[in-house]
């Protein structure tokens, strides 16, 4: 059964930056076929902040991974930034991720042997930039997340919230069009979580980034402009007013 598309064009009539049609992902484990995502239709407009919610196994992380280009659909169409990801080779997918996607992980995934500065610089090394340009970009990103004074700190010298902010700086330093965040506040205390969510919100509002975030936390989801609920691999509800409700 194909669902009616949930059209991101509602926001200002922009061309959707993410467009899914009949998007399906199945895995074969032994004799079983698991379908975490089935026949999904979805449009996400540029600059939207989408929160994906749902119980475990509902397919939200699978959708996130597909959008991020670290997984490939079994069938259907997935266009991200005009690129049809279903047809792209692994090497092209790596280039796509470097150019289009900034990834924020629940457990930060900073490289422990590199300083905050070097961690943020990592994605830039894939781009043709002079050392001076790289330095400027890293400094700007660290400043944006409020950690300019921690540039020479190693991850073990930072708090969880600071580590996540470094991870966000790393995700935005290449100026990607889309930021995908997998439970970015899942491992943080309330205060740090609020700071991180404020930062993500700022990225959408001030820099026009499109954010797709997986979360279990309604308070985090409240920062999104649209909340999508998935269940058993299907989109069951979208709630643009969730932010207002959760914030109440």
């Amino acid at each position: 059964m194909t669902q009616a598309p949930i059209n991101g064009q509602a926001e200002g009539g922009l061309e959707p930056i993410i467009r899914c049609r009949g998007l399906t992902r199945t895995y074969i484990k032994g004799d079983n076929t698991i379908t975490p995502l089935a026949e999904l239709d979805l449009d996400v407009a540029r600059g939207e902040f989408i929160a994906l919610m749902g119980p475990s196994g509902s397919g939200k992380t699978t959708l996130l991974n597909l959008v991020a280009g670290i997984d490939k659909p079994t069938s259907g169409s997935l266009r991200v930034g005009g690129v049809e990801l279903a047809d792209v080779s692994p090497s092209r997918l790596a280039a796509f991720r470097s150019e289009y996607i900034g990834y924020v992980f629940q457990l930060y995934n900073l490289v422990p042997v590199l300083t905050a500065y070097e961690n943020v610089e990592l994605p830039l090394l894939l781009h043709r930039l002079s050392g001076r340009e790289r330095h400027q970009r890293v400094a700007t990103a660290l400043q944006l997340v409020g950690l300019a004074d921690r540039h020479d700190h190693f991850p073990r010298q930072l708090s969880g919230g600071q580590e996540q902010r470094v991870a966000i700086a790393r995700a935005i330093v290449t100026d990607p069009r889309i930021i995908v965040a997998d439970e970015p506040t899942g491992d943080l205390d309330k205060e740090s979580a609020a700071a991180v969510m404020a930062l993500l919100e700022q990225l959408t509002a001030e820099m026009g980034k499109t954010i797709v975030m997986v979360t279990h936390d309604p308070k985090s989801a409240a920062h999104a402009s649209r909340v999508l609920h998935l269940e058993k691999g299907r989109l069951v509800v979208q709630d643009e007013r969730f932010a207002t409700l959760a914030g109440a």
Partner: peptide, 9 residues
Amino acid sequence: AMLQCLGYS
């Protein structure tokens, strides 16, 4: 895996 997410092959 994280490095692959960043775009390293």
